[in-house]
Structures are given as C-alpha cells and as structure tokens.
C-alpha cells in the first residue's frame, strides 16, 4: 500500500466499532506505517452513533479529523445516513445487511453488504459480528496483513478473553468468505 487509506467505522456504542479501528491501527503499526485513530467521545456514545476515524499511511498524517473517506464501515442506519455520502467516488461502503433498512443508492462507489449479525449468531457469539465485518473489509481492502491482524487482536482483546481468540479468527475468516459470496451473487445478477 503506497498511499494513505482513510476509514470511518460507525455504529451503535457496544458494537465494537472502536476496537475494530484499534485492530487495524495496531496491525498497521506492526507494519511500520503511520496511523491515527480518532474516536468520537462523549454522551453520543450512549444510544447514538459511536465512530472512529482510522488513517493508515506510509507518510506522516496531517489531520486526524477528516470528512471524506476511502472506506466507510457502517453498522446501523443513522451511520449510513451520515457517512454514506462521505465516501469518496470509487471508495468502499461496507454495510451490515440487517441493520440497513434503506440501502445506499450511489453508483459511483463500491458497496458491500454482509449479514454479519446473523453469521455471528450462527457462531454462537454475537460479539464477534465486528470481526466478521472486519474480515470482509480486509478482503476488499487488504491494507494490513491477516497475520498482523491476528497479532493486533491479541493486543486489543483483554487477556481474560484470550480463550476467544480462535473464535475471533474464525469470524475474520467467515467475513472474508462473505465478501466473496457477495461478489459472486452480484456478478450473477
């Protein structure tokens, strides 16, 4: 990756959007890249949308706060309404399928929609939905290597949850497959 990648990850507080961003940031740090992780903070985290802006760059990052993104990952409708229009032309919009009631109609960006919540239920752990989404994202935008993502996961996941590492790895893998399946279905249409 020779250029910067600017990402917004948004959803409800508790869905793991901040830790998703941290995992990308840790993985990028291991690859000697420049990074910034800027969370929304404050009362809006309870009930409203929580989000973080993650920038991964080969060179020094100027503003950690930006309004146009190469990729937007949205886990609820308010986040799509707010950030769907902030994706740069040619960029990627990744949505959690069941959370979106009125999908984005833009034709100048790549849209990927994955049923992460449903798949997480299937894995018997709804908390790994964010890892499924992350797996799908990295399949489309391999800005960090899968090995480093697993290393980063160890950093972000508190040690008392480390028995869940294999499950998280499985979720990342499932996300990757879902991205493929979505592409295959879209190609068939």
């Amino acid at each position: 990756m020779n250029t910067a990648h600017e990402i917004i990850i948004a959803g409800f507080g508790g869905q793991g959007v901040l830790s998703m961003g941290q995992i990308i940031a840790y993985a990028a740090m291991m690859e000697e890249k420049e990074i910034s992780w800027m969370p929304s903070y404050g009362p809006e985290m309870r009930g409203g949308t929580a989000n973080c802006i993650v920038i991964v760059s080969p060179t020094r990052i100027s503003s950690p706060i930006i309004t146009q993104f190469d990729s937007a990952i949205v886990l609820n409708q308010p986040s799509l309404d707010k950030f769907g229009k902030a994706v740069k032309p040619g960029g990627l919009l990744l949505c959690e399928r069941s959370a979106i009631l009125s999908p984005c109609t833009r034709t100048d960006i790549e849209i990927l929609s994955v049923p992460a919540f449903e798949e997480a239920q299937r894995l018997q752990k709804k908390q790994v939905a964010n890892m499924i989404v992350l797996g799908a994202f990295l399949e489309r935008r391999p800005i960090v290597s899968p090995e480093n993502v697993l290393q980063a996961l160890k950093k972000v996941l508190p040690e008392r949850h480390h028995h869940l590492l294999p499950l998280n790895e499985q979720a990342l893998q499932r996300g990757k497959e879902l991205a493929h399946e979505f592409a295959a279905v879209n190609a068939a249409h």
């Binding site: 940031a25 420049e34 990074i35 910034s36 992780w37 800027m38 969370p39 903070y41 950690p64 706060i65």
Partner: peptide, 10 residues
C-alpha cells in the same frame, strides 16, 4: 485539547 487526549497514535 480533548481530541489530542482521546486519539491514539504511534
């Protein structure tokens, strides 16, 4: 400021 306090960097 609050942003510098809350943001993460290397």
């Amino acid at each position: 400021d609050g942003a510098l306090g809350q943001m993460m960097e290397k």
